[in-house]
Nucleic acid binder design. Structure first.
Lengths: 221, 221
DNA sequence: GCGTAAGGCTACCCGCGAGTAGGTAGGCGG
DNA sequence: CCGCCTACCTACTCGCGGGTAGCCTTACGC
């Protein structure tokens, strides 16, 4: 049988480093998103990647390094996706709406990325939690800027700024939570999700800005 | 020195089982809340509890059992705290407000409990995640019932019910996120937190119910 | 006082998984 | 056609931490 088998590329061999790194990161994100940082084993990641364990260590370093690389890649993706969706010269509510749509589109398209970023990254003590918290803080501040901008534009200054940070934190949490909910309801489009949130909070903001506030009907307790 | 030391309870010894179980659970909640399930070691828990490791195993079983016991105790505490705060014969918005206040009071008083329930319980694959998700779902359904009740009371039926589940998920997420935010701002009282949320969402709901809806100003894209 | 059961401990086992040593193979310059 | 560098693997080490075997000791009943 001197005939050479004509398909030597079934299990692709001898690929350039960049390609392998991509494969490894893809596998790592997938495994981390399913099991979380601690329960994920390097053996399983290497298996999913179709690569042996030492490859991972030579290319991406330790488990923590690998996880960091995942986090950073997915965070960048998310950030770029949202920024690409925003049109900076629109009024605040439209900016928020477009940002939300882009966000939900991203979550739907890359659910593993979202899971790793949102759920798993907090479970690794130390650096990554801080990094994620930082990203989240920036998102909150961005939203707060929109809200305050809308507030001052309408003339209400002090109160909007005071409660702005808390409200924005709440809004970001609402958006995240709705994203998780949407994972179980894939038939609901990103436009509908964004609209729900806008209806929920923006009308609330609007009323606040107009000076209408809710307060307990009787001041018992 | 035949004189007996009158305070034999400095390093208390030979305590009844119920007391030890309490100490162990307290220590476990504290350690789990700091490090998460996987990174927490039984050795550290035993050290914090002031008790040796075998005690934990004889009294509370395996690590997973111990964590389960923590989750269940803290969940019960939270549930009872919120239920104690609710007055069932008030109108929906007041019920929600009282529930929120009780919730934020609990989070402030037992921040470790909250951390374990909210952050760490999801990181243990399987049963506990399901249990927590279940609790959360019940909370969402409860809120949804309030919202729909307020909606139908005002005459709007179909639309409120349709988006009710998603909106409630968002609201619960907002409440949780604001709870996390409040952990870093202990000077903000539970009443203020609850009021912020009410202003944010209830006014939004109100507008929805009244038929006023937000929509993108121009239907580009 | 003295048996006995319940409270409590020290000192160990052992599997799992992160990380590595050292060797093989295939392509490319010369 | 030959060396050699780089892609790549098999097969190991080793420490951490969950879990346990077996022993000590104090209080209390009789």
């Amino acid at each position: 049988m001197s005939e050479e088998v004509p398909r030597p590329a079934e299990r692709a061999k001898r690929l350039p480093r960049a390609v392998r790194e991509r494969q490894i990161l893809d596998a790592a994100v997938s495994v981390f998103s399913r099991y979380g940082y601690h329960s994920a084993s390097m053996d399983e990641i290497s298996e999913v990647a179709g690569v042996s364990k030492p490859m991972i260590y030579t290319y991406l370093g330790s488990k923590e390094d690998l996880f960091g690389a995942c986090i950073r890649r997915e965070a960048t993706r998310l950030l770029e996706a949202v920024q690409a969706g925003i049109k900076p010269d629109l009024p605040p509510d439209m900016q928020l709406w477009h940002g939300l749509r882009a966000f939900y589109r991203f979550v739907a398209d890359y659910r593993e990325s979202w899971t790793v970023l949102h759920r798993q990254a907090m479970t690794v003590g130390g650096t990554f939690a801080a990094e994620i918290t930082d990203m989240r803080t920036r998102a909150i501040e961005l939203v707060a800027a929109l809200v305050v901008s809308a507030g001052t534009r309408k003339g209400l200054g002090e109160q909007a700024e005071f409660s702005g940070a808390g409200l924005s934190a709440a809004l970001v949490g609402a958006a995240e939570s709705l994203a998780d909910w949407a994972l179980d309801h894939p038939d609901v489009s990103d436009g509908v999700l964004a609209s729900w949130l806008m209806n929920l909070v923006w009308l609330g903001f609007n009323d606040l800005v107009e000076g209408e506030i809710w307060k307990p009907s009787e001041s018992d307790d």
